[in-house]
Design a protein around this nucleic acid. Structure first.
Lengths: 146, 146
DNA sequence: TGATTTTGTTACTTATAAAGTTACATATTC
DNA sequence: GAATATGTAACTTTATAAGTAACAAAATCA
């Protein structure tokens, strides 16, 4: 498949929404993302369900932030998108009978799961607001290690 | 795309090759992997170039191990495959001009790169031989932490 | 020598999931 | 009632590994 770019895209959108009070239409967002409004609505749906944004119809409608960006971690954004498939690499089969194949799958899965944990940890340590606060991210991560 | 299962597949093959002295044909390997000989040859090509296996043509030909499995780490196997694309998730664009998009990409890439490091570390701590030596993998990893 | 086996490689098709597109019902505002 | 937006369903496109077919080259066997 193509590379899934929904996470950076919605982060981008959230940062833009934070810069204005007025609702931003899917059409305007589509222009920011170089895509079309329908895809924007589909992609943002998860964030709406999670309560991070609100959408209103009709004249003057559009998307607005419904929560402060410093109270939303990147991990929550990823989850709101439905925790999309992270890896392009995976096991050979779900439940092979061959013991050697099982061993190969176990080792592959173990490395992938460890990587997934790191990914989730990293996302959990950063809020969306941190992204535009230079070095805040590094400081926060350093403090967590103490 | 489909999930890339080359890593567990070639690990599976290496473990099988270790169980016999005779060359194993691509056709026989194809039956183990539920695929066809041509794909086997294509997939194994990297391991041949890396010197992990050898292939001989003609009657009685096929694939044989060219190196001891306890001297091959999973990281080396992954590299021999050409270090395939690990993630299904990625940045929104390569070099966006929007500063907010840059920030979104930076954060996404940072989490992915941290995950990749974990993946590589994990693969580096295990040899192919470890896969069929129960608990050897855990012991080795525990020792590395000391 | 000539038939057979097997790899090495190229070219092409299929499968899968996100991206992209189109269309329209529904809701809100003017 | 006209215009503006979202919500959603259906469909097409794209990208990449898997899968397939075909054949030249090399090695073995009779």
């Amino acid at each position: 498949m193509r590379t899934d770019s929904r996470l950076p895209r919605v982060l981008h959108v959230l940062l833009h929404l934070d810069q204005t009070q007025d609702p931003v239409t899917s059409d305007q967002i589509g222009k920011m993302l170089n895509t079309n409004p329908s895809l924007v609505r589909r992609t943002m749906a998860g964030l709406r369900e999670a309560g991070f944004v609100g959408a209103t119809k009709g004249h003057g409608g559009g998307w607005v932030l419904a929560k402060n960006l410093d109270s939303i971690s990147l991990a929550e954004v990823y989850a709101a998108l439905g925790s999309p498939q992270l890896f392009a690499v995976g096991k050979s089969a779900d439940a092979p009978t061959c013991l050697l194949e099982q061993a190969a799958n176990r080792a592959t899965s173990a490395a992938l799961e460890a990587a997934r944990e790191t990914f989730q940890e990293k996302l959990g340590q950063v809020t969306v607001a941190d992204l535009v606060r230079p070095h805040a991210q590094e400081i926060r991560q350093h403090q967590e290690k103490l």
